[in-house]
Amino acid sequence: MDLGPYLVLATLEGAVTAAVLALTAVGLSLVFGVMRVVNIAHGEFFMLGAVIAWALAHGLSGHPAVGFAVALVVAPLVVGALAVAADMTILKRLDYDPERTIVATIGLLYIIQQLTLMGYGPDARPVAAPFNTRLAIPWFEKGAEGWQMIWPWGLGTTSYKLAVIAAAVAVLCAVWALMARSRIGLVMRATQSDREMALAFGIPVERVYALVFGLGAGLAALAAVLIVPIQQAHYLMGADPLLLSFVVVIIGGLGSLPGTVVAAVLIGLSDGIISVFFSPTLAKILATLLVGLVLVFRPQGLFGKRGG
């Protein structure tokens, strides 16, 4: 294959990564933005989503689409409920102290991960996609008789991957609408900008926090359900989404949703492209160094404004 088709392929794969990453990272960003909590266990909520999807797809008989559709609704709800419980029993008691909540969410990470290992086991298990038509992509090449359309071998995608991108876009729009247009979004934004003021206005801040923590975890779980037909479920699968979400949230500007989405698209695309041309380890090294350096030298994020 020439470079051109190769790039198209990498971009398509990158777009799928970006879509899932955007969902996961927006969850992390929401939690940080509203609650000022850095949730190290975010990747484990993602992993739980995938494992629950496998359990449902496996447990429910019939067409694979049935189990998948159920998982799409149930997994985020279950994971969200778990997160709400964790918020009320742990984070609330720590009074959302930034450093202590980080330590607590590290503990939570190991608890979720190791309980999954005990219950689900160490294997990676696949979930069938509800539909998976192969779509070839044409390419134009200048041959002996001028420009012609060819179908390079290996250049293509699946209907499911396109559906993942579409679904992620739809959910992101819904989150945006929720934050910008609804009453609950207004309450969240009020809590984010000034907690004391929100308390003074009678906003039940603790309930808002629990809701946000649940929503953030639910988004991660939803992202995992979408990706699990492509990636398989495994008890250690939470590490990469956590790292990449960090990269995205920090580069996009802590707590800024539009910045997060833009960064997710950039990182997702470049991760796909860099991983195709270089080793994935090198890509990860660059990503982690970038996060560290951005935090040191441009803590407002690459797209954030200085000051304030």
């Binding site: 850095v38 930034p98 980080i102 960090f246 990860k284 090294i285 160094l289 935090l295 040191v296």
Partner: peptide, 25 residues
């Protein structure tokens, strides 16, 4: 020299990220 330019949560994340970069290296 790098991480001490930050404090609190940022210090934690910066040390985490550089250590991770070291591990990957």
């Amino acid at each position: 020299l790098l991480a001490l330019r930050t404090s609190g949560v940022a210090f934690m994340i910066v040390t985490l990220m550089f250590a991770q970069a070291g591990y990957l290296t």
